[in-house]
Design a protein around this nucleic acid. Structure first.
Lengths: 210, 210
DNA sequence: CTTTGCATTAACAAGTTTGTTAGTCTTTAC
DNA sequence: GTAAAGACTAACAAACTTGTTAATGCAAAG
């Protein structure tokens, strides 16, 4: 009826959405432009008409996804208005939920950055900016809490690596971990829910926070 | 001079070694049989002569690597002759060292299992066998230690997932993490060494072990 | 010495994948 | 109504990738 009908995407957007799915699932090397075009419901010439090359289309997707991943980390742990224990609990949970909702994202970024480290250099200053802002704030809060005897001292960078490590693996390696847990849990989602709480507790125990 | 000269590999072995490197670095989709042949120093017809297809060659590599990864986990944590704290410390360190020495292995396995989950089914009984044997033994030791008040109770499966998560990520995501830590550490190896100890402590603190 | 069988090579072939192009259709502006 | 511009299609082409094949070399067995 009007300007914001969610149903009819234009061709460019349809291609972008199809490309996102294909690249995230199969990576650059495994993705096929013909498959993207078909999934978008357009001829594959249109893909080249709008984006020239597979490379340029890929660049669009990966830049967007790298930015998203950085923003999520900042968004999850950046809120300094809460007491440390709450800030960390919420941060771990928010980060976990986002990863669980976007399960191929970490694998995608890790693979493509490994294959072409120069892609990282484009984001490097932005990544380092986010990291130093976040880590600076978090570190001083950890220090303050430790000085008051409310928790153990800790290195904010190490803590962040702990959290990301713990949150990523069960999602990235879902098929393998799923095969190991077998029927122990009702579903893999049930395992993930348990895992989220386990990760929160692992981090809080590490900090020995009161 | 004699039977165990390490220098002259035969053609088949040269292809296998070159294939291992290419597949681990680029994955199945990104690997090129021509590149493998060139790296092995043979014509690419030889690759087909010895292994028929790219698929069959790949199967050889991935089966070997999946088995290796399973054996490593079992080897690192399977030794039940030590006190629990030592068993875990040594397990984490051994596992970490192996991953650090084989940095592309986890990425490779995770990617290829994701791309073709049926590859996992071939190993499934073996993987589950290893897992249940390992977890059973570890769980009873954890329970016993907890009953004596020497440590907190814990789920062996969750603990194993913790350890693997913590150990894999800094190696898998080395370029990204390296960019974040910037000049904080002398080298990435120095960071990894610190990381290994951090992981041991994270796990021991979680168990609150004496 | 010759025959047999394996190893190797060069050339080729089929299929796939990315990218182009010439021309058509549709919408908008005048 | 028509001219212009952008969107679109079908067909094609070039490059790449996997895999084959026919011919050759070579070493061991008889």
């Amino acid at each position: 009826m009007d300007k914001e009908a969610p149903h009819a995407e234009d061709t460019e957007t349809k291609i972008l959405h199809a490309a996102e799915k294909e690249f995230l699932e199969k990576g650059y090397a495994g993705a096929r432009t013909a498959t993207i075009a078909e999934a978008a419901g357009v001829t594959h010439a249109m893909l080249h008409y709008y984006f020239r090359t597979k490379d340029k289309l890929f660049e669009r997707i990966i830049t967007e996804k790298m930015t998203l991943l950085g923003d999520i980390v900042l968004g999850a742990f950046g809120d300094s208005s809460l007491p440390l224990a709450e800030r960390i609990r919420q941060g771990v949970e928010q980060h976990f939920d986002f990863i669980a909702a976007n399960p191929s994202l970490p694998r995608f970024i890790i693979n493509e950055v490994y294959a072409h480290p120069e892609r990282l250099r484009i984001m490097e200053t932005s990544v380092q900016g986010i990291a130093s802002r976040l880590l600076g704030g978090l570190q001083s809060e950890i220090d303050e809490s430790a000085a008051r005897g409310l928790s153990r001292p800790a290195d904010a960078l190490m803590l962040l690596v702990d959290i990301i490590s713990l949150n990523l693996f069960p999602v990235m390696a879902a098929p393998i971990v799923g095969s190991i847990i077998g029927g122990t849990y009702e579903s893999y989602d049930a395992f993930l829910a348990a895992r989220k709480q386990e990760n929160v507790e692992t981090i809080l125990k590490k900090l020995n926070i009161h």
